[in-house]
């Protein structure tokens, strides 16, 4: 019952306030109700009014009217403290499953100070911050991840009780931001197609770091290529910036292949993820294939990102 009501309310809110990367809070987005303290305050006022009536005490009347008017004034001020605030968000960095995704939220004032603004995903986990006119506030909100794939940012809740805490004004925001979650890397045996050579491969991997691999030739520099392979000598003579290419004998390129692995889907993806990271770290070219996708042998940041992205979003092979 309660859950259904909450869901309906949220749908209604979503219709009123569509998702946007940057919004300015105004009356269509800010909600305000008495806080629990505000309700207790109102009950106290009722008691004081009773005392004023029964003792015919003008000062008690005066007190109750002053405090009651303060409540009205507090409604305006609490609303004002939240409205006009500009909230923006940046696309977050991809993370591995199990890590905390970091969503960036910018809070910026439109000329007035906003105090004690609580920002968070829920009611209980919130940062409280002041937003002053001169400076923009940049907040990092962590969100735990568990499964790979796209993770949409939940509704962001901005709320404040300032100045008196008698009321709570809040706004739900959908930034529309999402974070790509890679599989969680899982250490294990490297599965190559050359199962017979696997021992030698592993020995070779050790040697790779020492740079004793066969020299294959030169290729033009691309961002992401390892600096220690740059052909500095040629460059210093005025030639183009080239990268020395080392390689193994043809046919000995490493290939990470989903189908060559054993185990469940997520386990295989995690294992592949581990090796993508490891090989990329060692600047070693490798081919990569998933059912329905084949990336030829390459190395560099772009290749690594493409592999990880494919791993994160892989849906086939149940």
């Amino acid at each position: 019952m309660r859950a259904a009501l909450v869901a309906r309310l949220q749908r209604w809110q979503d219709r009123r306030a569509p998702a946007a990367a940057e919004v300015q809070l105004d009356h269509s987005r800010v909600y305000i109700v008495p806080s629990r303290a505000g309700i207790a305050y109102a009950a106290t006022l009722l008691l004081i009014l009773l005392a004023a009536i029964n003792y015919q005490n003008s000062m008690a009347y005066g007190l109750v009217f002053t405090l009651g008017s303060l409540f009205i004034v507090a409604i305006l001020h609490t609303y004002r403290n939240l409205s006009g605030l500009r909230v923006g968000s940046d696309a977050p960095q991809a993370v591995f499953a199990g890590e905390q995704a970091r969503f960036i939220v910018h809070l910026q004032s439109q000329g007035k100070a906003h105090y004690a603004i609580a920002v968070g995903w829920g009611v209980h986990t919130a940062h409280t911050t002041d937003v002053l006119p001169a400076q923009a506030q940049r907040l990092e909100l962590a969100l735990p991840t568990s499964a790979r794939g796209w993770l949409a940012a939940p509704r962001l809740r901005l709320s404040t009780g300032f100045p008196l805490g008698l009321l709570r004004a809040w706004s739900w925001l959908r930034s529309g931001q999402r974070v790509l979650v890679y599989p969680c890397p899982l250490a294990g045996e490297l599965p190559t197609q050359h199962a017979s050579a696997s021992t030698a491969e592993l020995a070779g991997l050790q040697a790779l770091g020492q740079g004793t691999e066969d020299f294959l030739g030169l290729k033009p520099y691309q961002p992401g290529d390892a600096w220690h392979r740059l052909n500095w000598k040629a460059w210093s003579r005025g030639g183009p910036l080239l990268v020395k290419q080392f390689g193994e004998a043809r046919g000995q390129d490493l290939a990470l292949d989903y189908l060559a692995l054993e185990g469940g889907r997520e386990q295989r993806l995690s294992l592949l993820c581990h090796w993508v990271l490891r090989l990329a770290e060692q600047q070693r070219p490798f081919a990569f294939s998933l059912p329905g996708l084949h990336l030829p042998a390459d190395c560099g940041v772009a290749h690594r990102e493409a592999c990880l992205r494919a791993l994160a979003l892989f849906e086939g092979h149940r």
């Binding site: 009536i53 029964n54 003008s58 009217f65 002053t66 303060l70 004034v73």
Partner: peptide, 28 residues
């Protein structure tokens, strides 16, 4: 707080003058 109190004064005065005063509900 002082600012809020000042802003509350006009409404409080109005209530003080116009809010209906009634006889004691019970004798204390």
């Amino acid at each position: 707080a002082a600012g809020l109190l000042l802003q509350a004064v006009p409404l409080a005065l109005l209530l003080f003058v116009c809010f209906p005063r009634i006889a004691p509900l019970w004798s204390l």
